[in-house]
Design a protein around this nucleic acid. Structure first.
Lengths: 128, 128
DNA sequence: CGGTATCCTAGTAGATACTG
DNA sequence: CAGTATCTACTAGGATACCG
């Protein structure tokens, strides 16, 4: 059949229906930057490059984030209905991402998780 | 150097310190069954095989769960302080897992996530 | 600027066999 | 019973080059 390894990531990675809301949640946040993207957008719309810069500055490590990865996560979040993409149709391009109502409603959930995590999860300061 | 691919999963998979509580949370629940394991344990201690059976019956698909995977997730949850393992030292072996206080405190968080997910996430009934 | 196309590495889950 | 050992398939993430 010569299936040729089409870089599976690019083909499959978006479609994943889940019967359980908790599993759906887990799928929605799966990915290294999704929660941070949502959190960053809580203060208002941001452009692709601004999101990227924000992810670098608050960084987990201070590595580059591959454009491919950011692009994929933004698409998935849009697909999940958490964010909306607005293309201004300009050259050079200008595209903004902002939270949808569902996305805004998720922000308090992140806060709950953060508060609980601070209390119960062993976190180490970067370098500890 | 002949590094030989030592099955990285068996060596690395436990150690992962995170500075951010939300990232720590994400790491803690990462894995296909962790949340469901915690949820299953909310009603009391369970043995390895009982947990396994429970994961099969409520199943996402109705596949087998590899013992290797369950074992790894249980270890990770114990490492994260969410569950405790009790070995009765018998032959044939009897081992029970139960929620720690931190684990018990996580149950309401799951409920919050579930409620939010039901409202805002597109879930499809299995087969839809 | 906002991505896509390719290639690569490492980790995660499954199947199966086997052990104390 | 409660796992470990081994092998394989698939996927997420990173690096880099390039396009409209």
């Amino acid at each position: 059949m010569s299936i040729q390894r089409v870089d599976a990531a690019t083909t499959t990675e978006l479609i994943r229906p889940h019967g359980c809301p908790v599993m759906a949640f887990q799928a929605m946040i799966s990915g290294k930057y999704k929660i941070r993207i949502l959190w960053d957008l809580k203060d208002g719309p941001r452009r692709y490059s601004e999101i990227r810069a924000g992810l670098l500055s608050g960084a987990t490590g201070t590595r580059e984030i591959a454009p491919r990865v950011l692009s994929r996560e933004l698409k998935a979040l849009a697909e999940a209905g958490m964010i909306a993409r607005k293309d201004y149709g300009l050259v050079p391009p200008k595209v903004e991402y902002r939270l949808t109502e569902a996305g805004k409603g998720f922000i308090p959930i992140i806060a709950v998780i953060r508060d609980w995590g601070e209390r119960h999860l062993a976190t180490r300061p970067p370098g500890g």
